[in-house]
């Protein structure tokens, strides 16, 4: 199967990445080639093979429910691109009608 510019634009939207038309065109071609080459995994993945999500077989790693110090407020907000009243300021969320 091949990937179209429309597909890539939709994926870029999902990933919140603005692409120029030139970028979109170039990426579409490159991704198509890459996808073509990685598709070999499908043939090898039989139903009898268990997928591996973690490199090692660890389980039950927990932390005790004990409070540890939080960051100082100044450190929390120090890198904020915009802030107000001790909170992070963000542009309006809904698109304007």
């Amino acid at each position: 199967m091949s990937l179209t510019a429309t597909d890539v634009a939709r994926l870029a939207g999902l990933a919140r990445i603005e692409l120029t038309d030139a970028e979109l065109e170039k990426l579409t071609g490159q991704l198509d080639v890459i996808l073509d080459s990685v598709a070999v995994v499908q043939a090898a993945a039989g139903d009898d093979v268990v997928p591996t999500s973690h490199a090692l077989d660890l389980a039950n790693v927990f932390r005790a429910d004990e409070v540890t110090p939080s960051l100082a407020s100044a450190a929390v907000l120090a890198a904020a691109p915009a802030q107000e009243d001790g909170r992070f300021r963000v542009p309006h969320i809904l698109e304007e009608d």
Binding site: D65, E66, V67, P69, S70, V76, G86
Partner: peptide, 27 residues
């Protein structure tokens, strides 16, 4: 109502000063 958050040791408490119960993990 655990004492701390799900994945870090910050206090799980309602009504504190904004962003005062935050750390690298929950941020």
């Amino acid at each position: 109502n655990t004492k701390t958050k799900m994945f870090c040791g910050c206090a799980n408490e309602f009504g504190a000063e904004p962003n005062s119960h935050t750390c690298p993990v929950c941020l």
